[in-house]
């Protein structure tokens, strides 16, 4: 098959069979094909890391909707990435409760440590920092979600530790891959 060996970095390709299979599962849930748009973008993002213009076009073609409609959805949701992001996306909660308990201090700390402001990716390509609406864990603030993990009662020290762990994990993964 033409797309079966599309690697995660190959964002120019049309949809892979796997991506199509995952998208197909969603259609029966809705009256309209467009409703699958957001989930389809998420599926493509899962495989490719982000949603390029060509990926977006491929999804729109597959859903038989106008790319402009899909684009208007893609740009609306902050968890759909229209540009490359780091391997760890950090959602720092800056809502009222976390602000009272000190999230600003943490953001300053992250900036010093990784040289990134919200919306930016660290030079090593590992971390992207994003602001997020309230994460709904307000009694345990300040909080941050990294991938699917919640980190609660955060301090500068805890953030340092988390950053070290993630750097270590990715360096190890890269080393393992290069020796395969």
């Amino acid at each position: 098959m033409e797309h079966s060996n599309a690697s995660s970095g190959n964002t120019d390709a049309g949809l892979s069979d796997e991506e199509k299979r995952e998208i197909d599962r969603e259609f029966s849930h809705y009256e309209g094909r467009a409703s699958v748009g957001l989930e389809a973008l998420r599926i493509v993002q899962k495989h490719r890391g982000w949603v390029s213009d060509k990926s977006l076009q491929a999804v729109a073609d597959y859903l038989e909707i106008a790319p402009a409609q899909l684009e208007s959805v893609a740009t609306y949701f902050q968890l759909i990435f229209r540009q490359p992001v780091g391997r760890e996306v950090m959602l720092l909660c800056k809502s009222a409760s976390c602000w009272i308990t000190g999230c600003s201090r943490l953001q300053v700390h992250i900036r010093k440590r990784l040289q990134i402001a919200p919306g930016q990716t660290s030079k090593d390509g590992i971390f992207t920092l994003l602001e997020t609406p309230c994460l709904g864990d307000c009694d345990k603030g300040p909080v941050m979600q990294v991938g699917e993990e919640m980190h609660r009662h955060l301090t500068e020290e805890a953030i340092d530790k988390l950053i070290e762990q993630k750097i270590h994990k990715h360096k190890k993964n890269d080393a393992d891959r290069s020796t395969d």
Partner: peptide, 11 residues
């Protein structure tokens, strides 16, 4: 879609 600042009940 619980997102109101300071709201942590539906979760």
């Amino acid at each position: 879609d619980e997102m109101e600042p300071g709201t942590f009940k539906d979760r």
